[in-house]
Design a binder for these strands. Structure first.
Length: 303
DNA sequence: CTCCAGGTTCCGG
DNA sequence: CCGGAACATGGA
């Protein structure tokens, strides 16, 4: 973030808050890969530090590192981290449920240990609203700008980390201020969604009790939220592990690997195929296919 | 310079 | 209902 956009009037910096403790705890893990989980394009604010990562889980500062089958995390964030990184997921059961084909097997070997995060709902929704037609690195840049300018900042022994600004905070901003965070046309969507939540027209937490179809329909009433982003929030926020977001990469995977003989297939056919073929943990399958295709820049799909 | 990125919305057939 | 275009920004 360079000077040009914040020259005119310097905003008041949020007051740093001292981290509560420097104690760390060790958590044994199996089938967990911290780096792949953090860098697989689900969350966008973790910063590599000291061989691990620093960031916030909601409003809880967290620094975490992995060595083999042991994860070390600051004690104050241990419970949050267990939940956020979904250390309770039964990976053997999930892997057993994957379809047995060459593309899926390759994606599994490549992405093994990646967890589907349980992210706080608003920061997940907001981050994906800003993700439309952006590369992962750009989404991360936007997240960091919004967090550091408008979120609560905490000084930790691993550096400063910031929480995502709450809906009522975003709702006090102008579209121009959001555009100055490089949001482009997404500024209007983020502002409108923040206003809807701050004004009580939608209650993200209350939706946890509803069926996935109901949640999806409610989310899609928000500006800038269509089927893809709604499915990302279902998967990465609400923990609906069968939700299957179809983005440009996954569409590429589906067409090349599973629809090679049906180039005329439309979006509905792709959606219906995905909903059944990949099983009850289709969201996991989707994330593994996405990560594999993206990091090999599509070469994983060549014949 | 051109192309594309974890899409959504609006418009004309 | 369907395909196409507009929408901002920045890295490859």
């Amino acid at each position: 973030l360079k000077g040009s956009s914040i020259t005119a009037k310097r905003r008041r910096a949020p007051r740093p808050i001292e981290a509560t403790t420097s104690d760390e705890v060790a958590i044994p893990v199996k089938e967990f890969n911290l780096q792949r989980t953090i860098e697989s394009g689900q969350a966008f604010h973790w910063v590599p530090v000291n061989g691990g990562y620093a960031g916030c889980i909601g409003r809880t500062p967290c620094w975490i590192t992995q060595r083999g089958t042991s994860v070390r995390v600051n004690a104050a964030a241990a419970n949050s981290a267990r939940d956020y990184f979904a250390l309770d997921h039964d990976m053997r059961q999930i892997y057993r449920s994957f379809p047995d084909d060459t593309v899926m097997r390759a994606a599994l070997e490549f992405s093994r240990g990646t967890r589907i995060l349980r992210q706080p709902l608003w920061e997940c929704l907001a981050a994906f609203i800003t993700s439309a037609l952006k590369q992962v690195a750009h989404i991360a840049a936007i997240s960091h700008t919004l967090r550091s300018r408008y979120g609560e900042t905490f000084e930790t022994e691993w550096g400063a980390v910031s929480a995502y600004p709450a809906p009522d905070r975003i709702a006090t901003l102008t579209e121009r201020e959001l555009r100055n965070c490089a949001l482009g046309f997404r500024a209007r969507s983020l502002l409108g969604s923040a206003e809807a939540i701050a004004g009580g027209r939608i209650d993200l937490e209350a939706l946890r009790l509803r069926e996935s179809d109901e949640i999806r329909a409610e989310l899609q009433k928000l500006p800038g939220v269509g089927p893809k982003i709604a499915n990302c929030v279902l998967l990465f926020g609400y923990g609906r592990l069968d939700a299957f977001p179809i983005d440009v990469w996954i569409e590429r995977v589906l067409r090349l690997a599973y629809f090679a003989d049906k180039p005329e297939a439309n979006a509905v056919e792709l959606r219906e195929f995905s909903a059944t073929y990949f099983g009850p943990y289709g969201g996991y399958a989707q994330q593994y296919l996405f990560h594999h295709a993206r990091l090999t820049r599509g070469r994983s799909l060549e014949p």
